[in-house]
Design a protein around this nucleic acid. Sequence first.
DNA 1: CAATTTATTGATCATTGCTCAAAAAGTCAA
DNA 2: TTGACTTTTTGAGCAATGATCAATAAATTG
Lengths: 199, 199
Amino acid sequence: MANKTLLQLKQKERKDRRRLILDAAQTLFARKNFREVTVREIARTADVSIGTIYNCYADMTELFLEIFLNHIQKITRILDQETRSHALSLDRLCKTYISYLNENMTFYQMMGHFMLGGSVSEDAAQKLNQTTKRLMDRIEGVLTSTQTRKIHNRLSAHALFSALNGIMISYARYPGKTPKEIKRHTLRLAGVVARVFGQ
Amino acid sequence: MANKTLLQLKQKERKDRRRLILDAAQTLFARKNFREVTVREIARTADVSIGTIYNCYADMTELFLEIFLNHIQKITRILDQETRSHALSLDRLCKTYISYLNENMTFYQMMGHFMLGGSVSEDAAQKLNQTTKRLMDRIEGVLTSTQTRKIHNRLSAHALFSALNGIMISYARYPGKTPKEIKRHTLRLAGVVARVFGQ
DNA sequence: CAATTTATTGATCATTGCTCAAAAAGTCAA
DNA sequence: TTGACTTTTTGAGCAATGATCAATAAATTG
């Protein structure tokens, strides 16, 4: 032991195992509703025992948080990509975000889960902060480049981020509406939010 | 039987029993986190057996929805009261709403619960629609009286409502923040939202 | 190869929302 | 009041859940 390369190898293996479980979980979350996914099913899908899952993750919330962070990173990447191909308008930003949420229910469902009491460890919280910060930078960037009066843009970015999440929380599962209707309505609301924040 | 008064009396009793359970549940929700409240504890607090609860409510979600509706009605009443005493500014509306949510975590936690999969029956959904409509009327009213350009105000009301809920979803349980810090931040965000929607 | 560390396993636990047969309480004509 | 009927209450019990941990298997090392 004490060989540095070997230690790194070990850590890589550890990451691989986490990856295995993570992928299985993400597959299931893409297929069915957040609440319906169980540890047992994740274990079965990853072809691993329940105990192994708890060997890689302290609890389900830790696993959820990793998936959550992945989503934030993916959205950040998508926004970066769009910015590269053309100057990203506020309207486009909002609609891209809402579109992503419509197609990845897990993401905001996890937001709901954390809000409902899924408590996060300290260093997990720090990772969350870092990752969110990066997304917030992009939002602030777009705000700064489109707003006429440039005041309190960081706070405005927070407010815009909140508003977009709120659209989904408030209307994503509105009783008696089809997914198509919901997408239409949430996208319209995204447009309104973009308009008011752009003035 | 078939006596109308008697039938009314029965229905009143039924309502009373529901009330008993509802009050117990609300007491508990005020005291502790949404997730930590169990049927057993509600039963114990209401001094009633578990079976009786399920005799009054089809399931927990139905009970939650009734509490949720009560909160919406109470907020609507508060807004009406404020409107009577002085013309309600958008800023005041937003901050009143966010203040209420800060002091009644249950309310938006239940929003999260429904979003996470708590399915609502058809007539419950209708009641939800009616009650939300009334609150939305107030919001739209304030928007109409303060906005310079009066377009799509119903949609704007939806967007504003979403934005306010989103503030709480996104920041109400932000890891490592005290309730006081959270209230401060969410109220500031409410101010931003009021400002952008008021232009 | 044997000793020791490390990882995996799944039976098991406590808790949950919810059910349902039995018991209790309420109703009312005779 | 009695006794047949209906309605309501009760809580032991069910299936399912997230999580645990002793036993087992695999990997590492001297």
